[in-house]
Computed example of a mutant assay.
Amino acid sequence: MAEPAEQQKQDAASPVTIKKYANRRLYNTATSSYVTLDHLAQMVKDGVDFVVYDAKTSDDITRSVLTQIIVEEEGKGQNLLPISFLRTLISFYGDQMQWMVPTYLDQAMVAFTKEQDRMRDYFANTFGGMFPFGNALGEMGKQNMQMFEQAMRMFTPVAPGSTKPTAEHEMEVLKRRMEELQRQTKG
């Protein structure tokens, strides 16, 4: 079993190293113990930074392990990713605008996290932490998802002779929307 998160935090500059062996076992080098994907999920929730390396090749496989955690959580019924979002995301692989998606998603999640923290603070201060605010966060998530899907539709290739706006115009619209979202989250 893994040590508590406080013991796993080394210093902020050096993430915990996890090694994945051919037998699919994950080894936490900071605690000298084997861990599971559930342990790694908890480390993420606790804010513990880690990197996962293939023990044989030394390749960084952090992205695939984090993706595996998401797949397992979704399989347990923890459905955070709507089907429409998954389809939209898949459609961007190999697309000419693929380079923009990670940055956009990262910024959207940062903004969402800030807003979520602000809402938690508001409800805790206003209602003493007794108010169930799950519906408000769910609604905000739906709105963020709709905004993301609208923005991504702007980048779908347009047939020649179409009356749709130019790519430059669409980029300007997206930029204004992102600035508006940032103002809303700061405000």
Rank of each mutant, 00 (worst) to 15 (best):
P157I: 11
L37R: 12
V35C: 14
K164V: 07
K56I: 08
N79P: 03
Y93F: 12
M43G: 03
G161W: 13
E172N: 05
F155A: 14
G134P: 06
G94Y: 01
L89Q: 00
P132Q: 01
D46P: 09
A124G: 00
E168N: 04
S33D: 09
Q150K: 08
E72K: 15
L80S: 05
S58K: 15
P102G: 01
G94H: 04
R176E: 06
E179C: 01
N125R: 14
D121W: 12
A30Y: 04
M140Y: 03
W99Q: 07
M171H: 02
A13T: 11
T156W: 13
L26W: 11
M100R: 05
S58A: 13
T103Q: 07
R24H: 13
Q107C: 09
Y27K: 06
F85K: 04
Q98I: 01
L37Q: 07
Y34A: 00
T103L: 07
M100A: 15
M171C: 09
Q150D: 10
M147I: 01
R153A: 09
M147Y: 02
H39Y: 08
M145S: 13
M147A: 10
D49C: 06
E115I: 01
S32D: 13
T67R: 09
D121F: 12
E6D: 14
T36Q: 05
M140V: 04
T67L: 06
K164I: 02
D121N: 11
R24L: 09
D11R: 15
E74Q: 14
Y104T: 02
Q10T: 09
V71L: 09
I70M: 11
F155V: 07
G128F: 03
V48L: 09
G94T: 04
F131D: 06
